[in-house]
């Protein structure tokens, strides 16, 4: 009689397309951790997974949508939010989650981000900020800090530009739930993603992550473990802090927490109410 060997299965595997393994992510990357956060948030809420739509744009984080075993769409660069808006407005019953990177969401898709926040359409945007364009080999982007090195901001000058603070950007654009965590704050970040999903409005959750392969190497920030350890060390949890004080300085202090949680009429709800009145 042969003894069957028990195969350990990851508890979140039920949400994942296992036939697409292995992951595309480099070792030490944060995107896989964030994928886990999103899966756990969905699991904790116990929502009907078939009604969840995961959308992303181009980039390393953009590949996330393809791993989820539900209706998923990988848009052109920067357009995840625009696609998601069409989905949500056309079928408000769906739970729409956008998972994409800082370059995709804040550079080429920056216009869509601010206007989606302004409209307050019910969706959850999880933005992994790893400070550079990883997929193309590490170029500076809208979140790269001043004077940091990348393949297109090489030594000795470094990045001539200044970075966006995504929490401030989303909050001032009108998002009704805004949070920031790092990739090591798995439980807290997962909780915020859950709140974001439950929130009837636009939720923006930034996850500060590590890209040891490109950004870490160019700036001598160490390997994946060292970078994640650093994120834990410099994180300063300040729940409820006004969003305009949510500073992010990679070297010294990354303010984390939930900064905005306000109520504002949500786009599809306003439409639904207006139609009800119209029909008497």
């Amino acid at each position: 009689m042969t003894e069957s060997v028990p195969v350990l299965k990851h508890p979140m595997a039920k949400y994942i397309r296992e036939d697409r393994q292995p992951w595309i992510y480099c070792s030490g990357c944060s995107v896989g951790i964030v994928t886990g956060m999103v899966a756990r948030a969905i699991d904790n809420l116990g929502i009907d997974f078939s009604k969840v739509v995961v959308v992303s744009g181009i980039g390393c984080t953009g590949r996330t949508s393809g791993y989820f075993k539900t209706g998923t769409y990988y848009t052109t660069h920067g357009r995840a939010i625009a696609f998601a808006e069409g989905v949500k407005i056309a079928n408000p019953e769906l739970e729409v989650i956008v998972v994409s990177g800082d370059g995709d969401i804040a550079a080429i898709g920056g216009n869509h981000l601010i206007h989606a926040c302004r409209r307050n359409i019910d969706m959850t945007i999880v933005c992994v900020n790893n400070f550079n364009y990883g997929m193309t080999g590490g170029q500076f982007g809208p979140t790269t800090e001043h004077l940091r090195y990348t393949q297109t901001s090489p030594p000795p000058i470094g990045n001539v530009e200044h970075s966006f603070n995504l929490v401030k950007l989303a909050a001032s654009s009108g998002a009704t739930f805004v949070a920031r965590w790092t990739a090591v704050h798995v439980r807290r970040a997962t909780k915020s993603i859950e709140k974001g999903i439950e929130k009837k409005g636009l939720s923006f959750i930034e996850i500060v992550g590590a890209c040891p392969t490109a950004y870490g190497r160019m700036n001598r920030l160490g390997d994946g473990v060292a970078m994640h350890r650093h994120l834990l060390e410099v994180a300063d949890i300040q729940n409820g802090l006004p969003p305009h004080e949510a500073e992010l300085d990679y070297e010294t202090r990354i303010v984390c927490g939930e900064f905005v949680d306000v109520e504002k009429p949500e786009y599809t709800a306003v439409l639904r109410e207006a139609y009800k009145k119209l029909r008497g």
Binding site: V55, G71, Y73, T75, T76, R79, I81, A82, F83, A84, E85, G86, V87, K88, I89, A90, N91, L94, N111, H112, H115
Partner: peptide, 14 residues
């Protein structure tokens, strides 16, 4: 760009 991309999104809901 957003207009037509949202149209693609809407179309995928049927």
């Amino acid at each position: 760009i957003a207009s037509i991309t949202s149209v693609i999104g809407a179309s995928w809901t049927g």
